[in-house]
Simulated assay, not measured.
Amino acid sequence: MSRAPLKLAEIATARPRSRDGSAQGLLLVLLGLFLWRQPPVKTAVLIAALEALGLTENAARKAIHRLTQDGIAAATREGREASLSIAPAGEALFEEGNAQVFGFDGERADWDGRWLVLSVSVPESQRMNRHYLQSRLAWLGMGSPVPGIWISPHAGAPIHPVIEKLGLGTLASSWVGGFGPVGDEAAMVRQAWDIDGLAALYAEFIARFGKLAPVGDAERFVAYVQLVQAWRRFPFIDPKLPARFLPDPWIGRDAAALMRDRRGAWGPAAQRYWDALRRGGA
């Protein structure tokens, strides 16, 4: 029995421990762009920056509190002044996240034609494990053309930790190889991945930021943070399929080119605005 591929909206809402909510998402972007590998900053500066991005002071404070509770940020206090720095767990998070977000260029490397195939069966009594498995494998870029079978054109995808975490080692098997003589490879890909949905998300990104023309450091600061927040999901929801399975031209390349252009145009002004906030101490 075949099924429709997971929709991108379903994957986005299913990601375990997602912090893509408005306040926390914006704060994570701020920390990754302006505080990572930098000295601590006064909490008042972060609140002012988040208010410039459209959040209320209350929402900003809650987001800061949650990230400190999660161990991503660390708060210190000297007298009546509170400051925030990146905690060790946050350092690892931003190290990986920045590399993924800014290293993702939409291009497709040469492919050797090999598929990673995972067969895994989750008992009906473990529905929560099934949900976790599906979301984690989807976020690894894997697709499921039929129930119980997951595939990836990336033979080295790290599926073992996911299977082990759920204790499904005795219920799973995997193998690597080329597509066989039976079936239609392109049809399998279309069944496993929502390529049209991904293209639509790229089109939305281009429509939003392609026509945006902020003026001055403050507007460019807001536009830049929103740009990065919108872009950072793509390295996770784009399965990086080989070019032969994608429409030509592929809109993902255009979106990546726009991201690079806007980052270069808005990034320096955003940094100036942030530096001015720091100097003023809000």
Results as ranks from 00 to 15, higher is better:
P249L: 05
G103I: 10
G143V: 08
Q229R: 15
R15P: 03
M1I: 11
V101G: 08
A207R: 15
A89R: 13
L137V: 02
E96P: 00
R232D: 10
A243Q: 15
A73E: 04
L84W: 14
E81M: 09
S135D: 12
P235M: 08
F209P: 05
R17G: 07
T170D: 08
W266I: 12
P239C: 13
A87P: 07
A213K: 11
L84G: 02
W193G: 03
F102Y: 15
E91W: 02
I149A: 03
F209R: 13
L55R: 15
P40M: 12
S18G: 15
R262P: 05
E51H: 12
S18K: 13
L140F: 07
R260W: 04
A243V: 09
A257Q: 15
R244M: 09
F209E: 09
A207H: 12
H65F: 14
T68M: 13
D261C: 05
S2W: 13
M1F: 06
Q226I: 00
A200R: 12
S2R: 13
D184T: 07
A186M: 08
E219V: 05
S174Q: 14
R37E: 13
A49P: 02
R253D: 02
V215I: 14
D254T: 15
A82Y: 12
D105K: 03
P161C: 05
G106R: 04
I151V: 15
M128V: 15
E107I: 04
Q100Y: 04
A257R: 15
G280Y: 04
P39R: 01
V29C: 14
V146H: 06
L168Q: 00
E78G: 10
P242D: 13
L26K: 15
W139E: 08
A200F: 11
A44P: 03
A265G: 07
H154Y: 11
D238H: 10
V228I: 14
A9M: 08
P145H: 08
T68W: 02
A75P: 01
P145C: 09
D70T: 10
F245D: 00
G79S: 08
V228S: 10
S83W: 07
D238Y: 04
E10P: 03
L137A: 01
I206P: 01
E124H: 06
I206K: 07
P123H: 02
R114T: 06
T76A: 14
A223S: 11
A257G: 06
K7Y: 08
A265W: 03
D248A: 15
M259P: 01
Y132D: 02
A256P: 14
L116F: 10
A213C: 03
W150A: 00
H65A: 14
S125W: 00
K7I: 01
A256M: 10
P239F: 07
V120P: 01
V228Q: 09
Q191T: 07
D217R: 02
Y202A: 07
D217G: 05
A87V: 12
W231F: 13
F209K: 12
E57W: 05
F234Q: 07
L198I: 08
S125G: 00
S83C: 09
A207C: 03
L277F: 05
P249A: 12
E124F: 04
P145Q: 07
K62L: 08
G71V: 11
P249Y: 09
L116A: 05
Q226F: 12
G183E: 09
A257I: 06
G267L: 06
T68D: 10
H154Q: 12
H160N: 06
V122L: 00
R272D: 11
S85M: 09
